[in-house]
Amino acid sequence: MSHIRKNALALTAVAALLAACSNSRFVGNEEYGTDNQREMILRQTGGDPGASGLVVFGVDRSRQNQAAGGGGAGMTVNAFLWRATLDTLSFMPLASADPFGGVIITDWYTPPAAEGERFKATAYVTTRQLRSDGVRVQVFRQVNQRGAWVDAPTSAATNSELEDRVLARARELRSQSAGLR
C-alpha cells in the first residue's frame, strides 16, 4: 500500500498548491460534516451554530451583524454605509439604488446657485464591514454650452469630499445605534 499512500499524499500536496492559486474559495466550518450533537441539531433546525449560545468573553458579533444588516435578509453591504450614502446623496434625485450590489446612481441635478452646469453621482458601497474604504463616490459634471450639455471635468477633491461626508454620516448612525443598546 505504500505506493498508494505516496500517491495519495502527493495528490493532496498538489491539491493544496492548486488551492493556493487563483479561483479558490474559503471553505467555512459550517461546510464540513460534524458529529457534534449541538451543531447537528442547530443545523437541522435552522439555528446558527456560530451565533447561538452565551458569549462569555469577547463581542457577540452575530448581534452586531444583525443590527448592521438592519435585520433584513439579503442585505449584502454594510447597512450604516448604505444608509449614510443615501442620506448624503439625497439632495439629488435618485435614479436607481441596488442594496444587493451596493450601487446608488443619481439622476442629473442642477444646483440652484449654479445654473448652466449639472451633476450626477454614482456611489459604490463595497463591504459588509463599516470600513473607511468601504464606499467610493464618482461625480460627473456637464456644462451647458449653447444649449447642449457637454462633459466637463470635476475637481479631484469633490469625490473625496463626498466620501468623507458619507463616512461622517455613517459614524453618526453607528454611534446612535450603539447608544440604543
Binding site: 495519495a8 499524499l9 495528490l11 493532496t12 491539491a15 493544496a16 492548486l18 488551492a19 493556493a20 492559486c21 479561483n23 479558490s24 474559495r25 474559503f26 471553505v27 464540513y32
Partner: peptide
C-alpha cells in the same frame, strides 16, 4: 483541508 477551487476541495 484545502480551500475550494472549481468546486473541488481536498483533505488529509
Amino acid at each position: 483541508m484545502t480551500p475550494q477551487f472549481f468546486g473541488f476541495d481536498f483533505g488529509a
